[in-house]
Design a protein around this nucleic acid. Sequence first.
RNA 1: GCUGGAAUAGCUCAGUUGGUAGAGCAACUGCUUCGUAAGCAGUAGGUCGUAGGUUCGAUUCCUAUUUCCAGCACCA
Length: 576
Amino acid sequence: MKNIKEDIKLNVLNHSCAHLLAHAVKNLYPNALFWVGPVIEEGFYYDIDLGDIVITEEDLITIEKEMKRIVKDNKLIKRLELSKKEALAIFKDDPYKIELINGIEENSITAYQQDNFVDLCRGPHVESTKLLKNFKLLKTSGAYYKGDAKNKMLQRIYGVCFETEEELVSHLAWIEEAKKRDHRKIGRELELFMISDFGPGFPFWLPKGMTIYKALEDFWYQEHTKEGYQFIKTPIMLNRELWETSGHWFNYKENMYTSTIDEKEFAIKPMNCPGGMLVYKNNLHSYKDLPIRTGELGLVHRHEASGALSGLFRVRAFTQDDAHIFMTVDQIESEIIRLISFIDRMYKVFNLTYRIELSTRPLDKYIGEIAVWDKAEETLKNAIVHSGHEYKLNPGDGAFYGPKLDFKVTDSLGRLWQCGTIQLDMQMPERFDLTYVDSDGTKKRPVMIHRVIYGSLERFIGVLIEHYAGAFPTWLAPVQVNIIPVSNEHHIDYANEIKDLLDQNNIRVEVDARDEKLGYRMRESQTQKIPYTIIIGDAEKDAKSISYRKYSENDTTTVSIEQFIKLIQEVIKEKQ
RNA sequence: GCUGGAAUAGCUCAGUUGGUAGAGCAACUGCUUCGUAAGCAGUAGGUCGUAGGUUCGAUUCCUAUUUCCAGCACCA
């Protein structure tokens, strides 16, 4: 998808279209007051105060009509240069604009006028409303004034505008295509997972989804073993005191599930790190052993707000592919460079594109010394630069214990999902009094890194479902080969013989011997997106061969069973 | 959590002035034994999310509640 905000031409077009929207709303609802109407990656929106009036889907159509009318009128868009005083006079009845004007430091203020409608704006804009022909209002919703949940809600209307009709049509078609890839829909159709009303946000893995889940786990263990990780499993529930020590209790107790055991309060882990700390402390460590890389596929629970839940993308119970790396200060940069290249290698297997974001110290919710934070942030920056990547800065978005690098992958809707993250932590080792024995025999404080690559298995599978539109590569596919005997009477024995051979070679295979026509079973094999479908009939039986058809292809290839097994094994080995 | 919308068979959906529900697919049974995306016929399947209320009567109207959807806020 095109990033409208970053395309200069489209940015101006969409910004002008936001004004057009406001103009139309003002004509239809004279009492409407306007807050801000910025351009975003997907188009534009405008936050509007309509008092008690609620904009519905049907109202959007009316507003669109009014916008089209203004476009047809071909209103010139004029730039006004105003002093603060003049601006305040023009917008004297609009408390939102007065607030905006008072927030501007310079004395000169610009506004744009089309017909009788004037709106505050830095600009630039297109010269006439007639250039705003190809737009569409997409959705409406509430949005907090100034983005703060303590404030009242305004109504937000989203839309998008393009230069040509073709671009708009193809964009709308693309939105439709994205809906078809929705992992919740595909998850139901392919029987991968379910979520019950008895457990909102707590996904159930069905047999086929569990096969994918397990394939990802196996792959993860293999690759981490190569990278020198050791593995642990820590308890799901630990005493509240531990969470007080880690700082999670103070920062996140509202989102933690708790229970009382023998009159002591326990919390279900929302993070794996405190458990990992206890494992580290179980032994003395020498500087010679560092860095120590400890991996844990750890099941965590977080009480996410009900409105935040969304399929597998946001759940209340999920497995983090966590790891904690303990090292000396000198080892930080090289370890992070190594991690970035590890993550890069892992994502390439899935053909996932990603971008790196650096999040720095939060304004208030943080622990530790500012100087330590600054140094940590510097180290992360250097590591990215040395890895040859670019990054986006997110000031104030760091974890409460340290700055972090987020790896955001793009899903089919163009949404960015944080999957991987590397978090530097100079506080937790202090709080847990972690030490190692240095070469001079004294005890020193190690530094630690928290990191995940998938992020959570649940969310990652959600992203993969949409990424592949359910047509998983063979190594992940729940069923890799489907065998269809043309006639049950004559070919079932040979079909079963082949199934046994594939079974023996650890290939996930099924035989569809239902009393249905070949075309019917072939259709289902395709709608279930099974990578390889084998057809067994007289020709194959006589020649002791098999014919197979790859998913989404129309032609059939005939080979010996040995050749076929070799082919599948090769495909799986190459992670295709 | 907030704003708005939705909830009817396993799935997708129809059902307007309130008179206790229907289709296609799937399932099951029979017939058909079939060569690359839907063979034919029949059967069964719903307390119309849940709980109250209004009414002679509620899937339909009202209230509450649960879950889902679109955003917002949140996301260690």
